[in-house]
Design a protein around this nucleic acid. Structure first.
Lengths: 159, 159
DNA sequence: GGTGAAATCTATTTACG
DNA sequence: CGTAAATAGATTTCACC
């Protein structure tokens, strides 16, 4: 179900302004994108209804919340049949500590972003649960111990 | 500068509610966390001022915006002196297509999340620019071609 | 942490140029 | 796309229990 939404430069300005501040008021947003409030709000609602803007959220300090450890996990399966793939993907979705799971090209099949309270929780709630699925060939674990850059704001586009 | 913020279960409920809907009104938020509006707003402001809530944002369909391609890049440097590290980190922060850059344990030194319009832009604006920094030993590129799970909402915690 | 109230701002809708 | 106006809802701040 690909969306056929014709995004223009003004829409992207709206999106970037909201990525920087998701609670900006429509009046300030309109000013930022050089529009009057009415058409600005019309565009915003269209972006929401077309699924371009999927939702509003907050950026949280994971450590302060209680998850000081972020882990990147690369997984390869021991088979690539539809059955195995569906089993793994269904089970990985059930693990709440796994925030993201992507299918990838290259050596590994899947890439997972995980948050945990400590290393024991990672062993018990993530690594063991992944192995219990029974179709995993290898798991490569990397722990994050430094953030160089982290943003949600997309680059600008002229096209 | 580690934050000394004592988060309790109610604070985490507020955070999770806002991760799901960053534009929920304070009245609805208070109802969700079983609080009356005033103390709920007080807690929210504290979370903001303590840096637990770092900001408000939106969740955007990258493909609809104009970035159909997401890339994970693993980088190793050819030296680990302070000078080399600082050079690389400063330069990588200047590349707008690089949304995230983390320092990691394991085989690779850095992990980058990148968005681009097409493969040519990746070659030109990311891969080449990384090599031009002059301190890179190896680059491992993986393209994302499927999303199994993607959420910002942290798991619950009882502690 | 809970209640209530008043003032201010915002969103939302409608109509029209 | 722009302006204006009117309604309804939310935020904000206050004092007080």
């Amino acid at each position: 179900m690909p969306k056929e939404a014709k995004i223009d430069a003004t829409d992207r300005k709206i999106i970037r302004a909201l990525q920087k501040n998701g609670r900006i008021t429509n009046l300030d947003l309109a000013e930022n994108v050089n529009l009057s409030p009415s058409p600005c709000l019309r565009r915003l609602r269209n972006l929401e209804q077309n699924g371009v803007i999927k939702g509003y959220s907050i950026d949280v300090d994971a450590k302060a919340y209680g998850f000081p450890i972020m882990v990147f996990v690369r997984v390869t399966l021991n088979a690539h049949t539809g059955e195995t793939v569906q089993l793994f993907e269904a089970e990985v979705c059930k693990i709440p500590e796994v925030l993201e799971c992507f299918v990838m090209t290259g050596a590994a099949d899947y890439f997972l972003r995980v948050v945990v309270e400590d290393l024991e929780d990672y062993e018990r709630f993530v690594r063991q649960r992944l192995h219990e699925i029974g179709c995993i060939n290898s798991i490569d674990t990397s722990f994050v111990y430094g953030v160089v850059k982290q943003t949600h704001v997309f680059p600008d586009l002229q096209s």
